[in-house]
């Protein structure tokens, strides 16, 4: 579509305003994290200051962010990998073995969709009581189980959207060659879904990293994940904005970088295949 330069300029300005609206609060967050306590609390913005990196040291060491980063990374990676391991075979079953439009496949997918829609507040107290009963609260194990559950739901929906158009003849050829279903999955499907797998891993990791409700209820002390520790800063340190924002930057940075690096795969995964 050809457009006049003036129209392009107007469109660009509107878009740039939107981008500024998206990014300006983040810039403010980062700049506050580098200020001294006094400057961070100043009623008029302090534009020029010497960066204070001790806020980061404080947050990392005294604030426990170092420990929380370890916990969040472990819970996020474990649940994402387990979710993919469990979700891919189920998606293979419901798209390649059963035709995607068959009753069995539709029912299985609708069940997964139903579990995705159910708000976590339904299962919060049942999971809490059951996990408390077997000593899986107050450490990261119970939370990993719950996050794996949600990672499986995500993985099934994403893999299904990628596999629904995958030619089923390839699997049939593999079976005729004498491969079992698992071998067929590994040798014909797996090499074709690395993109979907990257998207699932990233989205499951972000989902786990950012999840707050279960993390708040199921972990404490040394097992707290990043959001719980950051939220705890508010009550512990009151209005120490410099340290609080430093913790926020530390906690958000890995996810933001990760998301930007793999953004190519994300749109399709995010919409469960709604767009290509």
């Amino acid at each position: 579509m050809k457009r006049r330069p003036a129209a392009v300029a107007v469109r660009s300005i509107v878009v740039y305003i939107f981008v500024l609206w998206c990014i300006a609060p983040i810039i403010w967050l980062v700049s506050t994290s580098l200020k001294s306590d006094v400057d961070a609390f100043s009623p008029t913005p302090v534009w020029f200051f010497i960066p204070q990196f001790e806020n980061y040291v404080n947050a990392w060491v005294d604030g426990g962010m170092g420990q929380s980063m370890l916990i969040s990374t472990a819970v996020g990676c474990a649940s994402a990998i387990l979710g993919i391991t469990a979700g891919l075979p189920l998606a293979y079953l419901t798209t390649q073995i059963w035709p995607p439009e068959s009753t069995g496949s539709s029912r299985a997918t609708l069940a997964i969709l139903l579990l995705t829609i159910v708000p976590p507040v339904l299962s919060l107290t049942p999971f809490y009581r059951a996990l408390f009963g077997v000593g899986l609260t107050g450490n990261a194990f119970g939370l990993t189980i719950i996050h794996t559950f949600y990672a499986i739901l995500l993985a099934v929906l994403i893999f299904r959207s990628f596999l629904v158009n995958f030619p089923r003849e390839i699997r049939e050829a593999a079976l005729i060659d004498g491969l079992g279903e698992w071998r067929a999955l590994l040798s014909t499907i797996l090499p074709n879904v690395w993109g979907a797998m990257a998207a699932t891993f990233v989205l499951a990791l972000i989902q786990s990293w950012n999840e707050f409700l279960y993390a708040l209820v199921l972990t404490n002390g040394d097992s707290q994940t990043v959001p719980v520790t950051i939220a705890g800063f508010l009550s512990f340190f009151g209005t120490n904005w410099a340290r609080l924002t430093a913790a926020g930057v530390i906690g958000a940075l890995p996810i933001v970088i990760f998301a930007i690096v793999v953004r190519k795969h994300m749109a399709r995964g995010l919409s469960f295949g709604g767009v290509k």
């Binding site: 998206c22 983040i26 939220a231 926020g248 996810i255 933001v256």
Partner: peptide, 30 residues
């Protein structure tokens, strides 16, 4: 369509979306 810096824009607007909601809430509280 044609917008200068489209690739950068697409990367930058991802940031609010993936930002931990707890951090977003505290940032706006500030």
């Amino acid at each position: 369509g044609r917008i200068p810096g489209k690739g950068v824009i697409r990367a930058v607007i991802l940031i609010p979306m993936v930002l931990t909601p707890v951090v977003a809430g505290l940032m706006w509280r500030l």
